[in-house]
Design a protein around this nucleic acid. Sequence first.
DNA 1: TCCTTTATTGACCAATTGGTCAGGATCACG
DNA 2: CGTGATCCTGACCAATTGGTCAATAAAGGA
Lengths: 205, 205
Amino acid sequence: MADQPDAPLTRIQQKNRDLILEGALTAFSINGFRGATVDQIAEAAGLSKPNVLYYFASKDDIHKTLLTTLLDMWLAPMIRIDADGEPLAEVMGYVRAKLEMSRRFPRESRLFAYEILQGAPHLTEILGGSLRGIVDTAAAILGGWMDQGRLARVDPHHLIFSIWALTQHYADFDVQVRAVLGPGHDPFVEAEPFIENLYRKMLAV
Amino acid sequence: MADQPDAPLTRIQQKNRDLILEGALTAFSINGFRGATVDQIAEAAGLSKPNVLYYFASKDDIHKTLLTTLLDMWLAPMIRIDADGEPLAEVMGYVRAKLEMSRRFPRESRLFAYEILQGAPHLTEILGGSLRGIVDTAAAILGGWMDQGRLARVDPHHLIFSIWALTQHYADFDVQVRAVLGPGHDPFVEAEPFIENLYRKMLAV
DNA sequence: TCCTTTATTGACCAATTGGTCAGGATCACG
DNA sequence: CGTGATCCTGACCAATTGGTCAATAAAGGA
């Protein structure tokens, strides 16, 4: 593998790389980078360990590929915040999208949670670079709306942090939430009206 | 060691066990349970590896001891919520205490975050047991205030989850928050008025 | 001081794990 | 077909790591 960096992938390469990334997402999201083994990834992917390392140079390589691949998807909802939209509706749309991502993609959420907890060894430049840019852009839009009196004045950056915290909490701390609520509860179903009400009250002018 | 389970600790035992737990807290909070090695713990504690394992039966034992020891401290502020106090002041007191704990004890926060992310293998019975009881008690107090019309009606359990999420986020995702804010910001100083305002608005009757 | 208990460590072990490699199987294409 | 490129694997290796143990050193009490 890795002869020509730009060479298009064969059918088999495409399929197996996908299998590996899928298995690795499961493995990493359960045990973190150091807790997951290449054997686990291989088994989850239905391949042999040497075969996994035939498609990726190293465990580290798999991890980095996963993170960078998924980061775009993770940030997409924030980019879709529309400066020309109705302020509260835009914020609510972002909140709902983020909560929906926690519900549908908890593995991705945990993958990032582990990475940040660890000090973001693979994401440091991205965090202070493109991520920061995207957040600043969104924060500027929010701040603009506040200037126009269309949204209550709060710190836009911390508003964004609060949305991340509140929504990702339900993915990352799922076991705790469920243990505390006990059986017969769907945390996500209950969380949505709670969080919506929260932002409606806080941001109402 | 561990001859008589109830035997009082000698001066040396007390000191070394403390050193080990202190070093282990640092090690586990940086790399998680599987990422931290007994050698790291030993070095952080200033002891040799065999000596560490003379005071604790295993790496697992150290981890479990840390978790159970620190859980009380972690939950203390919630227990202090006073049913006879002024509702909003009590909530704010809890919020402030929790944020202050994130600021002063980020290692403890990350230790718990890793444990929950991992599926809480060492805390499952506690999560659904004593923790759930404590949360239910606090939720009942909050719900009572809402019944009396002294606090806006929201789901008490999710109110508590939101406080956990918002405050612990600043400890667990510290690198991300700082990377996004850039230099010259103190996340905790900025977070306090933001979060206080949030709860004041949401819970105002 | 003497002697029992406690504390400490160097050396070692078995298991795990990330990664390599030579050689064989399979595929794609002329 | 045939043949070169791609794909796959069993066997293996070196490093790491949790844990053991016999032997030694230090405390501590009578």
